[in-house]
Amino acid sequence: MANDKSESELREKKEKKDKKRKHEEVAADGDDAAAAAKKEKKKKRKSEVVDVDDTIVTDAPAATSTAVVAVKDEEDEKKDLKMVIPVSALVPFANPLADEKQQKKVLKGVKRAAKHKSLKRGVKEVVKAIRKSPASNPSLAPTTLPNGIVILAADISPMDVISHIPVLCEDHGIPYIFVPSRAELGAAGSTKRPTSVVMCTPGQGKGAKEGEKAEWEEGFGELHKVALKLGQHVLV
């Protein structure tokens, strides 16, 4: 009987151990499944983050490109802006007055004159140079180069500052041209301030390179052609 009891006890113990093992195996399988599910969720989250980051990276160049285009548009608008001076701001005797195309040629000639040291600036200096030049009649020989070419700004106030210069130029046979802006005339003459009048002379001044003499003679000749063309339409 004792043997039977011990055998039954051993069987019961084995059964209990087997049940515990099965329970532990089931629990372990459940834990593994849960862990695997968590890993999959993490992977999905990472993939979503990567996708979002990719979209941000791909969209970034487009945003920067639009910003660059906007900046270029602003620069183009600034370049297109032009100094517009109303006619009422111009002196009534501004004749002949260069138009936009002719003004570019005139200001280009003034820049060349400043480069070759052949530019007189300001009312006093220009009047002095005109009075020193010999009197001549340009209508007798229009092809010959004059002693100078005077460029006046038409937006001068008071007008009495330059009103005597056109008459003085006519007495000495020196052609003159009006441009709308004194600011642009000053900038072309390499001065920081607006200039009311400048005078281009045919000869180079001190400090100019002798090798560029032919270049300035050509530039002065082109400026003389513009002055002659404008002089044909002078309103008396």
Rank of each mutant, 00 (worst) to 15 (best):
S190A: 02
A63F: 09
G221H: 13
E7Y: 01
A98D: 05
I165Y: 03
T143K: 08
E125F: 03
R11N: 03
Q102P: 01
V127E: 12
E75S: 06
K17W: 02
A63N: 09
K20D: 13
D32H: 01
V197Q: 11
H233A: 13
S133P: 01
V68N: 15
L81G: 00
V127P: 01
P175R: 14
V71T: 08
K19S: 03
M1D: 11
M199C: 09
K105W: 07
K41M: 15
R45F: 04
G219V: 13
K108F: 08
K72D: 09
L152P: 03
G30I: 04
I162Q: 03
K19P: 09
K128N: 10
R131D: 08
F220P: 14
G186P: 05
N147G: 15
P166S: 13
A129M: 02
L145E: 11
E12W: 09
T191K: 15
P86E: 04
G30W: 07
N137V: 12
K117I: 02
K16H: 07
K41I: 11
G221D: 08
K225G: 05
K105L: 15
E77I: 11
V68T: 10
K82R: 10
Q103D: 10
G109M: 05
L10S: 07
K43N: 14
A153M: 12
S6C: 00
K115I: 04
L119I: 07
K43V: 15
P61Q: 13
Q232F: 09
D73I: 03
L119Y: 11
D76I: 06
D31S: 11
E215C: 02
D51P: 01
V236F: 11
P134T: 02
E184F: 01
E7C: 06
D99P: 09
D32M: 06
M159C: 03
A36N: 06
I130Q: 01
L145G: 08
G173Q: 08
K120I: 01
W216K: 11
L152T: 00
V110N: 07
L168C: 07
C169I: 11
G207Q: 04
M159G: 06
E184I: 01
P146L: 09
T66F: 12
S47F: 12
L185T: 04
L97K: 13
K20W: 10
L235P: 04
K16A: 15
T66L: 15
M199F: 11
P92W: 10
G219Q: 13
C169E: 07
K16S: 09
K5C: 06
K41R: 14
S196I: 02
L185D: 02
K20N: 08
V57Q: 02
S181F: 01
L230C: 03
A129D: 10
K5E: 03
S133Y: 00
A60D: 07
R112E: 14
L10T: 00
L81I: 09
P180A: 10
S157D: 05
F178G: 05
E212D: 15
K82S: 01
